[in-house]
Design a protein around this nucleic acid. Structure first.
Lengths: 339, 339
DNA sequence: ATACAGTGTTGAACCGCTTCGACAACGCGA
DNA sequence: TCGCGTTGTCGAAGCGGTTCAACACTGTAT
């Protein structure tokens, strides 16, 4: 292994000069810098990360704790991860991947492996929160706990998204709506996005004088059809369906067809999912995009800010945007503006 | 931060004794060990990873380079990652996640960040191979390059899987088969699994006296339908369809219905995909399971072996297994045993 | 009693880098 | 010419562990 001393010798300078030439923390003459750079190139030198971390007390590594189960919304998780990794790399940070199951992982990596942490899939009373608040390193949550005081969070504004969905369908003239939500397992875990989604949905329905019909939706084909049957039974005149369940979306669409309903013609479907999922359905689905990639990127940015200097805690909720595609339509020609 | 010296002081021993008590590399009296353990517990001490890495020249971290694009088969990728991370953790290793795009990443992490590397999504002439063979750390490839000499690989035996698929359908009496393969992009990247799949498919068709009909299949709904139309045109009497394209599977199934064909009744569908993908289709699909989780685990095991002691290079291909579900059926009652 | 082979413990060197304080060389204004 | 602030470079002291050689004990065989 070539070390900084090898480089120093070859460039005819001291090791500290090489270090300063590399970090730029002190002025180095152009001539010397060139000699150092040449020596580095000749030798193919790369600083030893461990030594650097020890001496500088910075590792240039971020920890990302992700739910690694082939559960719902794999592609959403992948997008979070991708957003985090690419944004981290663009700031010269690497990412250490932890699983949700690795309870001791947080303290382990906090002692000298990472400079900051990002936690995904946060629950209402997340047991990891008391742990990370004692750490020297800053932490960002992706998701919202019940009590977010003392900790910074990013998430999608599910409340606003649900309201937007209802308003949009209502604006198109639909008055018989239903919401097919996340699987029961998500509710049992008390991941708060489901609560926020339901809250927003109920509130907007109330504001618009609509009956809120809500059903949790399992991810299997059978479970999705069962949930669909349930809402059709409760609300036979249904014309508008909001689906927040990537895995069930395809099943719901095909189920509607089996019920003799035509998506985009006599029933409007509005999905909450990544844009590309909505686009790849048999009928392109009008969707409110879940900007998972962006959320991952924002998480990294917030984290870097807090690593650079003390910062107040902050909660950032990303606003929803709606993409109209072919699965929605005005129910009666002169649709009232449902704003 | 509490250091090993704090622990030593509190336990009334030297730092080296604490180190030996922790590592077990020298005998320590039971009494001393107990005092040390108590001190560690009292102080909540966790050894500093960077310092340990520097002194011992081991980091207990593995690098995993994964294709982080919301491309085909996200769930397969997630399973690889999950297999790698969980198996690594069970051996007290953490995982550093790199993206395929991070060209310089390999050399960067190789200088002091990781003890070994795993590379996913290997191409025929993968430019990363010459890089990793110069590294001090061992590397395992998930996938097979054209020339695998000098490097260890794990992968699914796509050749055998294709043969098994043909034999199975043939054994059920189907003689008009077609293969819907991975998207054109995969072929252009020269990821070799597609080649091996095609080779095996053609060979078995030849052996069984069948006409090999093969079509690359895009991931969008429209592209999947186009590919289906193409094979139905080329082979109007088609009764058996092999699909190796997780993203297109649902579209193909629904497309068949639009063509008036009934999966499991007048057309047999056999998919190559993770079991849970096959199970969650409207009709449970007979599948040859892609054991992505296992492959990830095997990769870690092979890597650990090579980190522990010099080892010969080795290529491991995991044998396919077939799960019969409801999408396949015997075409004519006394089906010859097609073994 | 003497030598000898474990045991258990320790001090010190070292891993490769960063960073602080010191200092030489230089130009500048007084 | 003297003193002083700049600029560029260096030596040495860590950072927090691991590990080697050395050593003080015990207990056992001679």
């Amino acid at each position: 292994m070539t070390t900084i001393d090898d480089v120093a010798r070859r460039a005819g300078v001291s090791a500290s000069t090489v270090s300063y030439a590399l970090s730029g923390k002190r002025t180095i003459s152009a001539a010397t810098r060139l000699r150092v750079e040449k020596a580095i190139a000749d030798l193919g030198y790369t600083p030893h990360a461990g030594a650097r971390a020890l001496a500088s007390a910075r590792t240039n590594v971020l920890a990302l704790m992700a739910p690694l189960r082939p559960d719902v919304d794999v592609s959403v998780i992948m997008q979070f991860v991708t957003g985090v990794v690419t944004k981290a790399r663009s700031h010269d940070y690497d990412v250490l991947l932890l699983t949700q199951e690795d309870a001791a992982g947080l303290s382990r990596v906090a002692s000298g492996m990472v400079d900051g942490l990002i936690l995904m899939d946060v629950e209402a009373q997340d047991p990891r929160i008391p742990v990370v608040t004692t750490l020297r390193q800053p932490t960002i949550l992706i998701g919202l706990p019940e009590d977010s005081r003392g900790i910074s969070c990013v998430d999608f504004d599910f409340d606003a998204a649900a309201r937007m969905a209802v308003r949009h369908l209502r604006g198109l003239g639909h008055r018989n709506l239903a919401l097919l939500g996340p699987p029961p397992a998500v509710l049992e875990r008390h991941t708060t996005y489901a609560d926020r989604l339901f809250t927003g949905y109920r509130a907007q329905c109330a504001a618009d004088g609509l009956e809120p019909v809500i059903e949790a939706t399992g991810t299997s084909h059978a479970a999705a059809l069962a949930a669909l049957d349930a809402v059709l039974t409760r609300s036979p005149g249904l014309t508008g369906l909001v689906v927040h369940n990537e895995a069930a979306l395809a099943s719901v669409v095909s189920g509607l067809r089996d019920h003799g309903r035509h998506v985009g013609e006599d029933v409007a479907v509005l999905a909450l999912c990544p844009a590309y999922v909505a686009e790849s359905q048999p009928i392109p689905i009008t969707s409110i995009d879940i900007p998972a990639l962006t959320i991952g990127e924002v998480a990294v940015e917030m984290l870097l800010e807090r690593m650079a200097a003390p910062h107040a805690t902050e909660t950032r909720l990303l606003a929803p945007t709606l993409h109209e595609r072919q699965s929605t339509f005005p129910l009666q020609p002169p649709a009232p503006t449902g704003r």
